[in-house]
Write a protein that binds this DNA or RNA. Structure first.
Lengths: 158, 158
DNA sequence: CTGATACCCTAGCTCTCAGGTAGGTATTTA
DNA sequence: TAAATACCTACCTGAGAGCTAGGGTATCAG
């Protein structure tokens, strides 16, 4: 297990916001109260509030306070990648503790404090990290709202 | 952080075994005592013993007991993939707790106990898992023993 | 204005588990 | 036999995931 439920829950919130954004019949902004999402998906409201705070600080969602308030996506669902969402929730994406991304974008291995002792596994973790990031960047919120209908193609066990 | 030091240490052990296998001048089998690797890489010996036990049970290394005993790779370094190593150490590869691989190879989401409620994030985690596994399968122990000079940047496969 | 709604913030709680220690037994070589 | 080494089981401990608690603050309906 690698990502925590922070990513799990957070992504589900984003998907739910995107779904309801398409629902609004008039020109309404369609802000969604968090309690509604929490109940719909069976996630603890108080915990979601923490995650949503991170998403807001990352500029991925906007909020409206007060009665009739709630949250909405800050940008169209097609323009929000999972890389942004996951990074906002989990922090910098690193497949293993010793690997991180420096401010200049280069991959840094904390085992290599001694410069003439390169870490043999750095190549592996760099590759893994790259493939994860690329996959997350290639998937947007919009990709996840179009889940196929549960009716067809799912065989019901006897 | 996603993989633990189990993967980190275990991979380093495999690489070290591969390196010393190429050293033997005669036709010697070149078994390596674990204490030697532990000291060379600065890893705790008692902890390594646990990890090595997993690698042995997975058939990735062989052992010889008694004085002058030690460990050696069970197969050529080119034929041992990181997917095997990491899976032996960490268990089944899953990017998140709710996702796992069923016995038939299909990806299972534990949130989908209710068959008419498909999990919207399953697509994402499936994609991420697939990209991780593919990267691990494409990298062998042999790829890591040839560490480039500290100067060069690290290439990433397309 | 007043209350209800719902966002927003800070603290702290609990249980799991990564990461490691300890101490013993079995097996081989010299 | 003595030393070296693999092998096994049990235990310990700090940190962090995954919450809960309880307040504060902005906004809107009436």
């Amino acid at each position: 297990m690698m990502f925590s439920t922070k990513a799990e829950y957070g992504v589900r919130v984003m998907v739910e916001l995107a779904r309801r954004a398409g629902e609004s019949p008039g020109g309404a902004e369609s802000v969604v109260p968090l309690a509604e999402i929490a109940e719909h998906d069976g996630m603890p409201l108080a915990y979601l509030e923490h995650l949503v705070a991170r998403l807001r600080k990352a500029g991925l969602i906007d909020s409206r306070r007060g009665s009739r308030g709630g949250y909405m996506l800050a940008r169209p669902a097609e323009e929000i990648t999972m890389a942004e969402v996951v990074e906002a929730l989990e922090g910098s994406i690193a497949p293993i503790e010793c690997i991180s991304q420096g401010p200049d974008g280069s991959i840094v291995c904390s085992r290599e404090s001694d410069p003439n002792h390169t870490c043999p596994t750095k190549l592996l973790w760099t590759r893994v990290r790259f493939s994860i990031v690329r996959t997350l960047e290639d998937t947007t919120v919009a990709d996840l709202i179009a889940v196929p209908a549960p009716t067809a193609s799912i065989p019901v066990p006897a």
